[in-house]
Nucleic acid binder design. Structure first.
Ligand SMILES: [Mn+2]
Ligand SMILES: [Mn+2]
Ligand SMILES: [Zn+2]
Ligand SMILES: [Zn+2]
Lengths: 143, 143
DNA sequence: TTTTAATAATAGAATAATTCTAAAATTAGA
DNA sequence: TCTAATTTTAGAATTATTCTATTATTAAAA
């Protein structure tokens, strides 16, 4: 999952399809979001870039994130415990589990969660976001 | 719902029960949250205070909000479209509907929403937050 | 190829929300 | 009252993000 080479054409293609000019910086950031990171902050992306893509500026991190959001390739997530915005490269409909111990945000496929609501009909719901909070049981090793 | 007088002993009592010294500023802010406002921002509280409680400082708004949160009399809510934190005086378990037109956040009693999840058993869920987004149908006047 | 125009990247300044600091005011108990 | 603890306050500091103005890169036109 850390190999840079072969992914790049694919990622470049996705950017073009979405109407985004695939610059080196955008490809690098989008690949990091898709292949390496899990709901990172802008700061985490910058830290990664400092190691892997020298000279990439913080302004470009934010510019790129906003371009990707505008192109519907990325979504923002705001979580209770964290002041910073998290960026989510999973744009399919899904929910989240927030691990209270580690702070990690885990994707939950929408198929695993069923939401039934009986609101007054004046409420026309277009989207439902479920955030589950809790702890992850340390998996006991089978012997 | 705008009358100041009679609520105050009750509110003062609630603060004391929660271990919070009921100062005039705290009573005023907490009453505004309970009786007048709907998920206000700190800025909205300050604007209200400027009209109704002269000399109350912005620092006191934030201090008081954080004291109330610490005392479990208030909860923070972060919504997608808004950079500022919203403060929720409804501390019972409930969900939210975000009106995409007005930006208004509406409380949804938990009884109206059923969430069923089939996560792997390693996920121990302690809390579920549901945010529904959509539009509110203008109620057609009956004649 | 050059030339040109459009777009993107960059450093650093600016903004906006919230927190911190240090001093003055208030409160509650001795 | 006196005292100690707590709260309020103004303004400075911090933090995340956006903006600005300049330079660099890209893509299209000549
Ligand atoms: Mn992260
Ligand atoms: Mn509000
Ligand atoms: Zn996600
Ligand atoms: Zn609420």
């Amino acid at each position: 999952m850390k190999q840079n080479g072969s992914d790049n054409k694919l990622i470049s293609g996705r950017l073009e399809t979405a109407g985004v000019i695939p610059t080196a910086q955008r490809i690098a950031i989008y690949r990091y979001l898709l292949c390496e990171a899990n709901h990172p902050t802008a700061e985490e992306i910058k830290t990664w870039a400092d190691k892997n893509f020298p000279k990439l500026s913080l302004a470009t991190v934010y510019n790129t994130l906003n371009v990707l959001i505008e192109a519907n390739l990325l979504k923002e997530v705001k979580v209770p415990h964290e002041a910073k915005i998290l960026y989510d490269s999973n744009i399919s409909y899904h929910h989240h589990f927030l691990d209270e111990d580690s702070g990690e945000l885990v994707d939950i496929p929408s198929e695993l969660v069923e939401v039934t609501s009986t609101l007054a009909k004046e409420f026309q719901v277009h989207d439902i976001q479920v955030l589950m909070r809790g702890k992850r049981q340390k998996t006991r090793t089978q012997h």
